[in-house]
Design a protein around this nucleic acid. Structure first.
Lengths: 247, 247
DNA sequence: TGAAGCTCCTATGTATACATAGAATTCAGG
DNA sequence: CCTGAATTCTATGTATACATAGGAGCTTCA
């Protein structure tokens, strides 16, 4: 099965195996997994800009794996929609036009409104009560600078996780994960807008309260409102800084 | 880029290259593409039953490609959700439990109801008027035996294509394609039920008429009804023939 | 006879060498 | 100087050899 390495066999660098005292559950991922994660992170962070070309040999040299696992990584990125094959010349990071942002949010509306409805029916109230308390601290959190900001984004992730768990539908969760992948690229553009983050926290809070109350209709509509505001904010940020856009 | 072969280099069988008079636009697909299509078709047709094990060497021998393109094919099937990696022993065709059918239809509702709403707004009326006329012939078609049945399934495909075109959203279309892939496995179970097919044609007709009329609400609700009936039919068929189920 | 340990085997993960097609470049001819 | 074709070059597609890990089966000991 999954052959695992703590390090690349050819690169005998850090963490010598002799030093393990207990059980070192360190990296332990395959080369293709490492290549996938690195490329994916770099695309989501914008290090690999939209439109950037990816060459197998070039990338495999850079990351330190052979072409075979790198090809597997690129295949996964293509399935994710983050990379596309170019007709003549290798592969490229997919672009993110204003149109495609609208399209992504259209799918996001369909999925998240449905997910919110389901969550309001199937949720574990304790989980969302806990989340509600956390989100109530968001305004203070956003006054704490970088650390508070980090915690805030963790809260968003916690909310997404709670939603996935409440929905309990692998197909829907997978579709949502796909949307969130592309969303991560967009979020970079609109980050660090304190006023928007405070408003977003309030919108999340309303969704959570609707889920706690089992109010399917309010959960769906509050989600719709939240996504509308989120999209408006992204589009405004893009208009203010068109250079951040790729298309 | 895409290296293409008309035949496997090692299998020097039919269609000798010397006989090409004009331009033979025959198969011309890569080995990995061929492997992917064959495995995918076999899974959807049930030739490779749910739970069946897939071994790289075994399948690459059978299909006539080396392990490298076959691995690429399996990677795509995993991304499709048709194959899953087994912990200890190779890969297996994913199972389709009654629960997962419910889950799939839950996602399908979210996507298709939304798609129907959008289509009712953005559709090209001519396309759907044409479709309406076609679907009106469905009852007669279903009296024509195998040939009519084949034409009927083509009609369904035409409807899906028209819906995709009207939606015009690559993200949504991709998500719908994913659902339809899994749906193809399920449809095998409930096929050849004339009464259900006649009813389904009538349901499609109503959806089409709503889209033509630009009635977003009716389009969505008619879709909901159709999916409810479709799911009921599948579940009834499963209950009548539990052996067809895999889980 | 049962259990524990070891060995072998099998199947995937990885690296590399070779095949091939398309694009870019260069050279020749007008 | 421009245009065309041939060639070279580059990058992916494919095949194969080797590494490795986990399981199954067998053997051995109590």
């Amino acid at each position: 099965m999954a052959s695992v390495y703590t390090e690349t066999p050819t690169s005998g660098n850090t963490t010598p195996v002799g030093t393990r005292t207990a059980a070192p559950p360190v990296a332990v991922v395959s080369a293709s997994e490492r290549a996938y994660r690195q490329l994916r992170d770099e695309i989501l962070d914008g290090v690999l800009a939209p439109g950037a070309g990816l060459l197998e040999v070039e990338q495999s040299d850079r990351i330190g794996v052979s072409r075979t696992p790198l090809r597997a990584a690129i295949a996964r990125l293509i399935a994710d929609g983050l990379v596309a094959g170019r007709a003549g010349r290798g592969f490229m990071v997919t672009e993110m036009s204003v149109d495609s942002i609208h399209e992504l949010y259209e799918l996001r509306r369909a999925l998240e409104e449905h997910a919110a409805r389901i969550a309001a029916t199937r949720r574990d109230p304790h989980v969302f009560l806990e989340l509600r308390d956390q989100f109530r601290t968001a305004p203070e959190l956003l006054l704490l600078g970088e650390a508070g900001l980090h915690r805030y984004y963790e809260l968003i992730d916690d909310f997404d996780d709670a939603l996935d768990a409440a929905v309990g539908n692998p197909f829907l969760v997978t579709a949502l994960a796909n949307v969130r992948t592309h969303l991560a690229r967009i979020r970079r553009l609109a980050r660090h807008n304190p006023a928007r983050l405070r408003a977003a926290a309030a919108e999340h809070l309303l969704i959570i309260e609707a889920i706690v109350a089992g109010d399917t209709s309010l959960a769906a509509h509050a989600t719709h409102v939240h996504l509308h505001q989120s999209l408006s904010n992204v589009l405004a940020a893009l208009e203010a800084n068109p250079a951040a856009q790729a298309d």
